[in-house]
Amino acid sequence: MIIDAHCDALMKMYRNRRLDFQTPSVELDVNYPLMKTGGIKIQFLAIYLPEEIRTPGIEHVLEYVDILYQRILSNPEICLIQSRSDLNGVMNSSRKGVILTLEGVEGLQANLGHLRILHRLGLRSVGLTWNFANWSADGIMEARGGGLTARGRMLIKESNHLNLMLDVSHLSVKGFWDLMEYPDLSVFASHSNAKSVCEHPRNLTDDQIKQLINQQGMIGLTFVPWFVHKSDPVSISDLLRHLDHVCALGGEDYVGFGSDFDGIDRYITGLEDAGMYTNLANELCKRYSLSQVHKFLSRNWNRFLERSLPVS
């Protein structure tokens, strides 16, 4: 049983309206058949407005929500998880679950009413930025390295009021530490690795990893090859070096996976789509106890979600 904290299937389905989530396809790294093959129980689905949308607005965000409802949730075997009761219902049944997340708040147009509407439609997680700056904060690739703006702090307070989880992947280093000033937030990194293992701006420093652990957050190790190892080919063993490192920092109970499937065009060997999660599980079983493997694949995320989602 697997919980995966990040994929961009919605973006691919936004770009190509012919893609069908319900049937086998080589064009999607994550779909319903691959979730079944790979043992994915819950998949986080990101709303990410690609750069070709020059003036991102709420209408684009709502198109993603419509895709979710019309083309994914039309399957009665897939449930939108909005509460702890939804989570428990999925975990104790044969159904699959999805969690709707926002990767970059450009489309909200600095309007907190838009955030509240999305929350009512099922949004449960917000990442303030993609790589660059917007009205709320700087992203990790923004040269000036600024933190939260005044409007960004208003967004954080409203997100906390709505019990939304806050995702620090893509956020600038200063933005990360600004966010940590709010001790009551449910914070996590949906798809980031360890910078000490692979030097890349999108990876987390040891201090950041320790802070997430201290705040009972989560680190979702990602399958983006260039975040895993500097040269190709990249193996599952290379990915597990990041897991070893997070565990060495005290993160055994606060680490899982966030593949970034459908957001990448190069792959770790043996992890080319969601159906191949079994290869990762097999490699984990060679190195860790069965109890630890269950933690990494689902139990840590499940515990975080039980703590972070609203009761009903």
Rank of each mutant, 00 (worst) to 15 (best):
Y69M: 09
F223W: 02
D206Q: 03
L118E: 06
P76F: 10
R241E: 14
N300C: 00
E77Q: 15
R15M: 14
Q109G: 06
F132Y: 15
V228W: 13
W130S: 09
F132K: 07
L62W: 00
S190K: 04
D66K: 15
G217T: 01
G256Q: 00
R303N: 15
S192Q: 10
V228R: 13
L118H: 00
G89E: 02
K210R: 15
A194Q: 05
V197P: 10
R116N: 02
F176G: 04
M13V: 02
I78W: 14
L240C: 07
P33Q: 08
Y69N: 14
R84L: 06
F296L: 01
I156K: 01
D8C: 03
I140C: 08
P225A: 08
Q82I: 03
V26Y: 15
G139Y: 06
A281G: 09
G107K: 10
E63I: 03
R116L: 07
R287A: 06
V98F: 05
I67K: 04
V293E: 04
S25Y: 05
I78F: 13
Y69G: 00
L102K: 11
V255Q: 04
T23G: 10
E77H: 15
G275I: 04
G146T: 01
P201L: 08
I264H: 03
M218P: 02
R124Y: 06
T37V: 13
V105L: 13
L121D: 05
M13L: 08
G146N: 03
V90S: 08
L34Q: 13
S308K: 03
L28D: 05
L284S: 11
V255Y: 02
D86K: 12
L179V: 11
S192R: 11
D29I: 01
D8K: 05
A9N: 05
A194W: 01
L309C: 02
Y267G: 00
Y32K: 10
H161E: 14
L221T: 10
V234I: 14
L68E: 12
L166F: 08
L102H: 09
I156P: 02
M180F: 12
I2N: 11
K12Y: 11
V228N: 13
M1Q: 14
D253E: 11
R116E: 12
L121Q: 05
I81P: 04
M180I: 04
G217W: 10
D206P: 01
L164V: 01
H200K: 07
C198T: 15
M35R: 07
D8P: 00
C79S: 13
E59V: 04
L155I: 06
D238C: 05
L309I: 00
G127E: 06
G139T: 01
Y48I: 11
P310K: 07
